[in-house]
Design a protein around this nucleic acid. Structure first.
Ligand SMILES: [Zn+2]
Ligand SMILES: [Zn+2]
Ligand SMILES: [Zn+2]
Ligand SMILES: [Zn+2]
Lengths: 138, 138
DNA sequence: AATCAATACGTTATAGCATAACACTGCTGC
DNA sequence: GCAGCAGTGTTATGCTATAACGTATTGATT
Protein backbone atom coordinates (compact mmCIF):
# COMPACT_ATOMS: atom_id res chain seq x y z
CA UNK A 1 0.00 0.00 0.00
CA UNK A 2 2.97 2.24 -0.52
CA UNK A 3 1.62 3.99 -3.58
CA UNK A 4 -2.06 4.38 -3.06
CA UNK A 5 -2.68 7.08 -5.62
CA UNK A 6 -5.68 7.70 -7.77
CA UNK A 7 -6.07 9.29 -11.20
CA UNK A 8 -9.66 10.19 -12.08
CA UNK A 9 -10.66 10.07 -15.72
CA UNK A 10 -12.32 13.47 -15.85
CA UNK A 11 -9.27 15.62 -15.33
CA UNK A 12 -8.20 18.15 -17.90
CA UNK A 13 -4.87 17.75 -19.61
CA UNK A 14 -3.08 20.23 -17.34
CA UNK A 15 -4.61 18.77 -14.21
CA UNK A 16 -3.59 15.30 -15.27
CA UNK A 17 -0.04 16.39 -15.99
CA UNK A 18 0.28 18.11 -12.63
CA UNK A 19 -1.22 15.26 -10.65
CA UNK A 20 0.95 12.79 -12.51
CA UNK A 21 4.02 14.77 -11.56
CA UNK A 22 3.00 14.85 -7.91
CA UNK A 23 2.22 11.15 -7.94
CA UNK A 24 5.71 10.31 -9.05
CA UNK A 25 7.55 12.71 -6.78
CA UNK A 26 9.25 11.32 -3.69
CA UNK A 27 8.78 14.61 -1.83
CA UNK A 28 6.65 17.75 -1.98
CA UNK A 29 7.03 19.98 -5.03
CA UNK A 30 6.56 23.70 -5.34
CA UNK A 31 4.45 25.03 -8.17
CA UNK A 32 7.62 26.19 -9.88
CA UNK A 33 9.24 22.78 -9.46
CA UNK A 34 6.22 21.29 -11.18
CA UNK A 35 6.39 23.87 -13.92
CA UNK A 36 10.02 23.05 -14.64
CA UNK A 37 9.19 19.34 -14.79
CA UNK A 38 6.40 20.02 -17.27
CA UNK A 39 8.06 22.44 -19.66
CA UNK A 40 8.76 19.51 -21.92
CA UNK A 41 5.01 18.91 -22.07
CA UNK A 42 4.41 22.44 -23.23
CA UNK A 43 3.60 24.26 -20.02
CA UNK A 44 5.06 27.72 -19.91
CA UNK A 45 3.54 29.84 -17.18
CA UNK A 46 3.10 29.46 -13.39
CA UNK A 47 -0.60 30.15 -13.71
CA UNK A 48 -1.12 27.00 -15.69
CA UNK A 49 0.22 25.03 -12.77
CA UNK A 50 -1.53 27.05 -10.07
CA UNK A 51 -4.87 26.69 -11.79
CA UNK A 52 -4.48 22.93 -12.01
CA UNK A 53 -3.35 22.75 -8.40
CA UNK A 54 -6.36 24.76 -7.26
CA UNK A 55 -8.71 22.22 -8.74
CA UNK A 56 -6.76 19.24 -7.50
CA UNK A 57 -6.63 20.61 -3.96
CA UNK A 58 -10.31 21.48 -4.12
CA UNK A 59 -11.10 17.88 -4.99
CA UNK A 60 -8.78 16.50 -2.34
CA UNK A 61 -6.51 14.85 -4.89
CA UNK A 62 -3.59 16.95 -3.76
CA UNK A 63 -2.73 18.82 -0.59
CA UNK A 64 -0.94 22.06 0.00
CA UNK A 65 1.71 22.11 2.71
CA UNK A 66 1.57 25.61 4.11
CA UNK A 67 4.84 25.43 5.94
CA UNK A 68 6.70 24.51 2.75
CA UNK A 69 4.74 26.39 0.10
CA UNK A 70 4.61 23.08 -1.67
CA UNK A 71 2.21 20.38 -2.75
CA UNK A 72 1.84 16.61 -2.48
CA UNK A 73 -0.49 14.11 -4.06
CA UNK A 74 -3.01 12.75 -1.61
CA UNK A 75 -1.55 9.53 -0.28
CA UNK A 76 -4.85 7.88 0.45
CA UNK A 77 -7.40 7.15 -2.22
CA UNK A 78 -10.13 7.38 0.38
CA UNK A 79 -9.13 10.28 2.59
CA UNK A 80 -10.44 13.04 0.44
CA UNK A 81 -12.21 15.83 2.33
CA UNK A 82 -12.69 13.69 5.42
CA UNK A 83 -11.74 16.45 7.83
CA UNK A 84 -8.57 17.04 9.77
CA UNK A 85 -5.49 15.65 8.10
CA UNK A 86 -2.04 15.85 9.60
CA UNK A 87 1.24 15.78 7.74
CA UNK A 88 4.54 14.68 9.20
CA UNK A 89 7.33 16.17 7.16
CA UNK A 90 10.86 14.83 7.48
CA UNK A 91 13.49 17.54 7.31
CA UNK A 92 16.05 14.94 6.36
CA UNK A 93 14.65 13.19 3.32
CA UNK A 94 11.64 15.38 2.63
CA UNK A 95 9.18 12.53 2.78
CA UNK A 96 5.68 13.30 3.96
CA UNK A 97 3.46 10.99 5.93
CA UNK A 98 -0.22 11.82 5.77
CA UNK A 99 -2.52 10.64 8.52
CA UNK A 100 -5.76 11.42 10.28
CA UNK A 101 -6.59 11.32 13.94
CA UNK A 102 -10.18 11.14 15.08
CA UNK A 103 -9.39 12.03 18.69
CA UNK A 104 -7.65 15.23 17.69
CA UNK A 105 -10.49 16.12 15.41
CA UNK A 106 -12.96 15.45 18.21
CA UNK A 107 -10.89 17.63 20.51
CA UNK A 108 -10.88 20.42 18.00
CA UNK A 109 -14.59 20.35 17.51
CA UNK A 110 -15.09 20.39 21.28
CA UNK A 111 -12.98 23.54 21.43
CA UNK A 112 -14.94 25.03 18.56
CA UNK A 113 -18.23 24.27 20.27
CA UNK A 114 -17.06 25.90 23.47
CA UNK A 115 -15.87 29.10 21.83
CA UNK A 116 -18.47 29.45 19.09
CA UNK A 117 -15.85 29.27 16.35
CA UNK A 118 -16.94 27.70 13.08
CA UNK A 119 -14.10 25.63 11.66
CA UNK A 120 -13.78 25.61 7.89
CA UNK A 121 -10.34 24.18 7.33
CA UNK A 122 -7.48 22.95 9.46
CA UNK A 123 -3.84 22.51 8.68
CA UNK A 124 -1.61 20.47 10.91
CA UNK A 125 2.00 20.05 9.92
CA UNK A 126 4.64 18.32 11.97
CA UNK A 127 8.29 18.93 11.22
CA UNK A 128 10.98 16.61 12.40
CA UNK A 129 12.97 13.55 11.40
CA UNK A 130 11.60 10.25 10.23
CA UNK A 131 12.76 6.93 11.65
CA UNK A 132 14.94 6.17 8.64
CA UNK A 133 16.80 9.47 8.83
CA UNK A 134 17.23 9.19 12.59
CA UNK A 135 18.78 5.79 12.18
CA UNK A 136 21.07 7.02 9.44
CA UNK A 137 22.27 9.90 11.61
CA UNK A 138 23.01 7.70 14.62
CA UNK B 1 -6.67 39.23 30.39
CA UNK B 2 -7.32 40.40 26.87
CA UNK B 3 -3.90 41.88 26.33
CA UNK B 4 -1.44 39.63 28.04
CA UNK B 5 1.70 40.74 26.24
CA UNK B 6 5.21 40.94 27.47
CA UNK B 7 8.14 43.17 26.49
CA UNK B 8 11.51 41.94 27.75
CA UNK B 9 14.13 44.53 28.57
CA UNK B 10 16.96 42.91 26.65
CA UNK B 11 15.62 43.36 23.15
CA UNK B 12 17.51 45.33 20.56
CA UNK B 13 15.95 48.45 19.13
CA UNK B 14 14.68 46.74 16.01
CA UNK B 15 13.34 43.79 17.91
CA UNK B 16 11.53 46.10 20.30
CA UNK B 17 10.03 48.11 17.46
CA UNK B 18 8.79 45.00 15.70
CA UNK B 19 7.38 43.40 18.82
CA UNK B 20 5.72 46.67 19.78
CA UNK B 21 4.06 46.80 16.39
CA UNK B 22 2.79 43.24 16.73
CA UNK B 23 1.57 43.91 20.26
CA UNK B 24 -0.62 46.74 19.07
CA UNK B 25 -1.94 45.08 15.96
CA UNK B 26 -5.49 43.70 16.04
CA UNK B 27 -4.61 41.04 13.49
CA UNK B 28 -1.57 39.29 12.04
CA UNK B 29 0.91 41.39 10.09
CA UNK B 30 3.19 40.41 7.25
CA UNK B 31 6.83 41.40 7.43
CA UNK B 32 6.15 44.04 4.79
CA UNK B 33 3.19 45.40 6.75
CA UNK B 34 5.48 45.78 9.72
CA UNK B 35 8.11 47.46 7.60
CA UNK B 36 5.63 50.01 6.33
CA UNK B 37 4.49 50.77 9.88
CA UNK B 38 8.07 51.31 10.96
CA UNK B 39 9.42 53.44 8.15
CA UNK B 40 8.77 56.48 10.31
CA UNK B 41 11.14 54.95 12.86
CA UNK B 42 13.88 54.66 10.31
CA UNK B 43 13.53 51.10 9.09
CA UNK B 44 14.11 50.76 5.38
CA UNK B 45 14.67 47.18 4.33
CA UNK B 46 12.74 43.91 4.70
CA UNK B 47 15.76 42.23 6.17
CA UNK B 48 15.72 44.47 9.20
CA UNK B 49 12.23 43.20 9.96
CA UNK B 50 12.92 39.58 9.12
CA UNK B 51 15.98 39.52 11.34
CA UNK B 52 14.04 40.90 14.28
CA UNK B 53 11.19 38.47 13.62
CA UNK B 54 13.59 35.52 13.56
CA UNK B 55 14.80 36.34 17.05
CA UNK B 56 11.34 37.03 18.41
CA UNK B 57 9.97 33.77 17.03
CA UNK B 58 13.01 31.90 18.33
CA UNK B 59 12.29 33.25 21.82
CA UNK B 60 8.59 32.52 21.57
CA UNK B 61 7.64 36.18 21.82
CA UNK B 62 6.02 36.07 18.41
CA UNK B 63 4.61 33.33 16.25
CA UNK B 64 4.58 32.81 12.53
CA UNK B 65 1.31 31.80 10.91
CA UNK B 66 2.32 29.63 8.00
CA UNK B 67 -1.01 29.72 6.26
CA UNK B 68 -0.97 33.52 6.14
CA UNK B 69 2.72 34.28 5.77
CA UNK B 70 2.20 36.60 8.69
CA UNK B 71 3.14 37.07 12.31
CA UNK B 72 1.45 37.70 15.64
CA UNK B 73 2.71 38.57 19.09
CA UNK B 74 2.43 35.70 21.51
CA UNK B 75 -0.83 36.18 23.33
CA UNK B 76 0.24 34.43 26.49
CA UNK B 77 3.09 35.61 28.65
CA UNK B 78 3.64 32.06 29.82
CA UNK B 79 3.15 29.89 26.78
CA UNK B 80 6.55 30.32 25.26
CA UNK B 81 8.00 27.14 23.82
CA UNK B 82 5.65 24.93 25.76
CA UNK B 83 4.94 22.62 22.89
CA UNK B 84 2.03 22.36 20.54
CA UNK B 85 0.18 25.61 20.05
CA UNK B 86 -2.90 25.97 17.91
CA UNK B 87 -4.15 29.12 16.24
CA UNK B 88 -7.74 29.80 15.28
CA UNK B 89 -7.81 32.41 12.57
CA UNK B 90 -11.05 34.20 11.75
CA UNK B 91 -11.47 34.85 8.03
CA UNK B 92 -13.94 37.59 8.83
CA UNK B 93 -12.14 39.94 11.20
CA UNK B 94 -8.66 38.48 11.05
CA UNK B 95 -8.43 37.95 14.80
CA UNK B 96 -6.32 35.08 16.02
CA UNK B 97 -6.97 33.00 19.09
CA UNK B 98 -3.96 31.13 20.43
CA UNK B 99 -4.46 28.07 22.56
CA UNK B 100 -2.84 24.85 23.64
CA UNK B 101 -4.32 21.42 24.05
CA UNK B 102 -2.58 18.82 26.13
CA UNK B 103 -4.67 15.94 24.81
CA UNK B 104 -3.79 16.72 21.21
CA UNK B 105 -0.16 17.01 22.14
CA UNK B 106 -0.33 13.69 23.93
CA UNK B 107 -1.97 12.18 20.88
CA UNK B 108 0.75 13.50 18.66
CA UNK B 109 3.52 12.15 20.77
CA UNK B 110 1.82 8.76 20.88
CA UNK B 111 1.79 8.76 17.08
CA UNK B 112 5.42 9.82 17.03
CA UNK B 113 6.36 7.02 19.42
CA UNK B 114 4.58 4.46 17.27
CA UNK B 115 6.21 5.51 14.01
CA UNK B 116 9.66 6.47 15.27
CA UNK B 117 9.28 10.04 14.06
CA UNK B 118 11.05 12.70 16.11
CA UNK B 119 8.90 15.80 16.32
CA UNK B 120 10.72 19.09 16.30
CA UNK B 121 8.01 21.60 15.64
CA UNK B 122 4.28 21.54 14.98
CA UNK B 123 2.02 24.06 13.35
CA UNK B 124 -1.71 23.81 13.74
CA UNK B 125 -3.83 26.48 12.15
CA UNK B 126 -7.58 26.53 12.06
CA UNK B 127 -9.39 28.74 9.57
CA UNK B 128 -13.00 29.69 10.00
CA UNK B 129 -15.28 32.30 11.50
CA UNK B 130 -15.26 33.53 15.07
CA UNK B 131 -18.43 33.81 17.15
CA UNK B 132 -18.63 37.58 16.68
CA UNK B 133 -18.43 37.40 12.89
CA UNK B 134 -20.91 34.52 12.74
CA UNK B 135 -23.39 36.56 14.73
CA UNK B 136 -22.86 39.60 12.54
CA UNK B 137 -23.50 37.56 9.41
CA UNK B 138 -26.74 36.04 10.70
C1' DA C 1 -28.01 25.39 -36.24
C1' DA C 2 -27.60 29.55 -33.45
C1' DT C 3 -27.15 31.21 -28.93
C1' DC C 4 -25.56 31.44 -24.36
C1' DA C 5 -23.23 30.36 -20.04
C1' DA C 6 -19.66 28.03 -17.77
C1' DT C 7 -15.19 26.38 -17.57
C1' DA C 8 -10.61 25.93 -19.03
C1' DC C 9 -6.65 27.80 -21.42
C1' DG C 10 -2.53 30.82 -22.78
C1' DT C 11 0.17 34.99 -22.12
C1' DT C 12 2.17 39.10 -20.13
C1' DA C 13 2.81 41.77 -16.40
C1' DT C 14 2.90 42.61 -11.64
C1' DA C 15 2.49 41.93 -6.67
C1' DG C 16 4.01 39.85 -2.37
C1' DC C 17 7.24 37.12 0.48
C1' DA C 18 12.06 35.94 1.70
C1' DT C 19 17.11 35.54 1.54
C1' DA C 20 22.22 36.12 -0.28
C1' DA C 21 26.21 38.72 0.17
C1' DC C 22 29.00 42.28 1.83
C1' DA C 23 30.70 45.91 4.74
C1' DC C 24 30.37 47.99 9.07
C1' DT C 25 29.38 48.88 14.32
C1' DG C 26 29.53 48.04 19.03
C1' DC C 27 30.01 45.17 22.55
C1' DT C 28 32.42 41.34 25.74
C1' DG C 29 36.24 38.92 27.45
C1' DC C 30 41.09 38.11 27.33
C1' DG D 1 44.58 46.29 22.07
C1' DC D 2 42.27 42.78 19.86
C1' DA D 3 39.60 38.68 18.59
C1' DG D 4 35.01 37.01 18.51
C1' DC D 5 30.29 37.60 18.19
C1' DA D 6 25.80 39.52 17.57
C1' DG D 7 23.43 43.11 15.52
C1' DT D 8 22.99 46.54 11.74
C1' DG D 9 22.37 48.80 7.05
C1' DT D 10 22.26 48.33 2.11
C1' DT D 11 21.82 46.48 -2.49
C1' DA D 12 20.57 42.98 -5.24
C1' DT D 13 18.23 38.88 -6.17
C1' DG D 14 15.17 34.85 -5.98
C1' DC D 15 10.96 32.43 -4.99
C1' DT D 16 5.85 32.34 -4.56
C1' DA D 17 1.35 33.88 -6.19
C1' DT D 18 -2.17 36.57 -8.59
C1' DA D 19 -4.31 40.35 -11.82
C1' DA D 20 -6.01 41.24 -16.15
C1' DC D 21 -6.68 40.30 -20.68
C1' DG D 22 -8.36 37.59 -24.58
C1' DT D 23 -9.37 33.03 -26.70
C1' DA D 24 -11.09 28.22 -26.96
C1' DT D 25 -13.99 24.46 -25.71
C1' DT D 26 -17.85 22.34 -23.86
C1' DG D 27 -22.64 21.54 -23.04
C1' DA D 28 -27.08 22.90 -22.38
C1' DT D 29 -31.23 25.85 -24.38
C1' DT D 30 -33.87 27.42 -27.74
ZN1 LIG E 1 -5.19 13.07 1.43
ZN1 LIG F 1 13.59 11.17 6.57
ZN1 LIG G 1 2.43 32.02 22.34
ZN1 LIG H 1 -14.16 37.30 13.34
Amino acid sequence: MAHDHVMPADLTRNQELVLGTLNHAPAPLSAYDILDLLRSEGLRAPLQVYRALDKLVERGLAHRLESLNAFVACADAHCHRKGLIAFAICEGCGKVDEFADAVTEERLSAWAGATGFKVERTTMEIRGKCAVCLKAAA
